[in-house]
């Protein structure tokens, strides 16, 4: 049994020498992030034996309160990284919840999830403080305020986003065939009109509304929340109950053709009520 014992001792001995001379080469499961590659052969600069990576070691270099403000070497950042500072100022001792150092072998670092519940309330209300660089450049997102993101997006994951179109217009079998039937300005979902199909010619709509004494009818969905043209009456519109308001994505005033009709939409509703009362008085 000497042979196997010698072979075992040789393997452990030579392997041990390899580990002590070049631990990075011998043991590293995935490449480190760029800023940490100098520590490739110093596992214990981040790891503690038998307890793994220690946040206290992270904070030994990346001191809470200085992240985004100064470099690890202590030099002032110019300009400051406001996003990094805002996120880190209230989070201490939880580095490993978001930062994975070893990549997965394909050059990508494991995506870890930031628990948004751990963020301070003021930061949580202003999604764009952190997510501004990811903000899509289309008209819909350009018009959204900083706290409107949660209308469609959840903090658990950015996608899929859910947009309850029914809050503004309920679809039925005729509406819509395509988004662009109503949102005809490319990429701008704040603008819409109802003249994109044969059923609604602008001239006929105008004529029918003027017959009813309605002067401002540009924001169709303000009164007609579905494809049913009589729905405004069923909603109690005539009893003075205005339709539900829009949200910030719709400019806070309800989307409208031309992107400026939120106020007009209200005038439309108010005008509708006012003129009907006048008719009743007569």
């Amino acid at each position: 049994m000497r042979g196997p014992a010698i072979a075992f001792a040789l393997a452990v001995g030579l392997g041990g020498v390899g580990i002590s001379l070049a631990p990075g080469q011998a043991l590293i499961p995935g490449e480190l992030s760029k800023g940490h590659r100098a520590q490739r052969d110093d596992c214990l600069s981040c790891h503690t034996v038998l307890s793994g990576p220690a946040t206290s070691k992270c904070e030994g270099c990346h001191k809470p309160g200085t992240i985004g403000v100064t470099t690890v070497a202590g030099a002032a950042r110019s300009p400051e990284n406001a996003k990094a500072r805002a996120i880190h100022r209230a989070i201490s001792g939880r580095c490993l919840e978001c930062h994975a150092e070893h990549d997965d072998g394909s050059g990508r670092r494991k995506a870890l999830h930031l628990d948004h519940a751990s963020l301070p309330a003021d930061l949580l209300q202003n999604c764009l403080d952190c997510h501004a660089p990811l903000r899509p450049r289309d008209g819909l997102h350009a018009a959204a305020s900083s706290d409107a993101c949660r209308t469609c997006h959840a903090t658990q994951r950015w996608k899929p986003a859910t947009f309850e179109h029914a809050r503004f217009f309920r679809f039925d079998r005729h509406h819509p065939a395509q988004c662009t039937d109503c949102h005809r300005s490319a990429g701008d979902y704040k603008r819409y009109d109802c003249y994109g199909c044969h059923a609604h010619s602008e001239a006929r709509i105008a004529s029918e509304h003027r017959e009813e004494g309605i002067r401002n009818f540009a924001d169709c969905a303000r009164c007609h929340r579905s494809g049913n043209e009589h729905e405004t009456r069923r909603q109690g519109f005539d009893q003075g109950a205005p339709p539900e308001g829009g949200n910030d994505i719709q400019g806070g005033e309800g989307a409208s053709p031309g992107g400026e009709g939120g106020g007009e939409g209200r005038e439309h509703g108010g005008g509708h009520r006012r003129e009907r009362r006048e008719e009743d008085d007569d």
Binding site: A11, I19, L27, G52, L96
Partner: peptide
């Protein structure tokens, strides 16, 4: 035996640095 020695090193090092 050499294989087992290398496995022991691999497992030992992993567990030693494990979280």
């Amino acid at each position: 035996a050499a294989f087992l020695g290398l496995v022991a090193l691999h497992v030992g090092a992993t567990l030693a640095l494990w979280s």
